[in-house]
């Protein structure tokens, strides 16, 4: 990063010439190199997994780097049938979808009220939510298990959605409250004068105005809930109930008794593909959502 700062770049510099001021040139070579290196660090391992998923177990060990001599599609059928990766995926989508929707609804309701209304326990509730960011989820697990079970929700998607929502509230309330505070008061007052009630004001005026902030917090929550490992592991006992994270973990653990490395790799590829497709389709929206949320 140490470049010659005395050679300011001129706005009029022409393209593609070596006579460019050093700063830009060095930076370009360096940055391109580093960017490319990082891209390789991501693409190569993933490509390797895909390739390995097509090999036989034997070939994986004798020739870890080469292309498969034969494309063993049956690895994928085996992974699909034995491990139920498809079910894990659907379970995950269902729970994360429900969890994020409920998180955003309850989170924005609480955040809105806490940010824009004055009442006696306001500060108390706000701090209670925000303090939750410091609680290690692990600490709550055992009592939480009994609570969920007592509600009759153990092993159900709904139960897990409620738990995901509860544990996403601290972060969500913290950021949305900050966001709601920045929204102009004038609009709200005008709406009230026009006779809109508190509910209409929230759903028809404030929510649309806060859309960008909501989208950006929702993206954080999708990422966070998608990666949950502990909660489903504990709260979704029994076979066929797994989400992706704990499902893959149990496939990996069963390797200890019944090694099937190619099958494991195939399971991983199956798990990766829909995520990849969804990301490529929605990446524009994700970036747009984050862009909008970034300005406050």
């Amino acid at each position: 990063m140490q470049t010659d700062t005395r050679a300011p770049e001129k706005g009029t510099a022409t393209t593609g010439t070596r006579k460019q001021p050093k700063s830009g040139g060095v930076l370009n070579v360096f940055s391109h190199g580093f960017l490319a290196l990082w891209a390789i660090m991501i693409i190569v391992p993933l490509a390797w997994v895909v390739m390995t998923a097509f090999k036989s177990d034997d070939e994986i060990f004798t020739d870890p780097l080469g292309l498969p001599s034969q494309w063993h599609w049956e690895n994928f059928t085996r992974a699909w049938e034995k491990a139920g990766i498809g079910d894990y995926f659907l379970n995950t989508v269902l729970v994360v979808g429900g969890g994020v929707a409920l998180t955003m609804l309850l989170g924005s309701m609480a955040a809105y009220v806490l940010a824009r209304y004055e009442f006696r326990l306001n500060k108390f509730f706000y701090l209670m939510f925000v303090a939750g960011m410091m609680f290690p989820v692990f600490l709550a697990l055992v009592p939480l298990y009994f609570i969920v079970d007592n509600l009759g929700l153990l092993g159900t998607h709904f139960g897990l959605i409620l738990v995901y929502t509860a544990y996403s509230l601290p972060f969500t309330v913290f950021f949305l409250a900050a966001f709601f505070k920045t929204l102009p008061h004038g609009v709200a007052e005008a709406a009230m004068i026009d006779g809109a009630g508190h509910y209409r004001l929230f759903f028809q005026v404030m929510m649309p105005m806060a859309r960008s902030g909501l989208v950006s917090v929702a993206i954080f929550n999708i990422i966070g809930q998608w990666n949950q490992f502990l909660l489903p592991q504990v709260l979704m006992p029994g076979e066929g109930n797994n989400l992706l994270a704990d499902g893959i973990a149990s496939v990996a653990v069963s390797q200890r008794y019944d090694p099937d490395f190619s099958g494991l790799m195939a399971s991983m590829v199956i798990a990766m593909i829909p995520a990849f497709v969804a990301y490529v389709i929605f990446q524009r929206q994700i970036q747009a959502g984050l862009t909008a949320g970034a300005i406050k």
């Binding site: 009220v113 009442f119 969920v148």
Partner: peptide, 26 residues
Amino acid sequence: GLFITSFLVLPVALYAIMVISPFLQA
């Protein structure tokens, strides 16, 4: 007041049951 209560009751209840109480027990 009613509005505030109606907006807070669900999130706070869920949070108290699922987050606060297990932590206190632990």
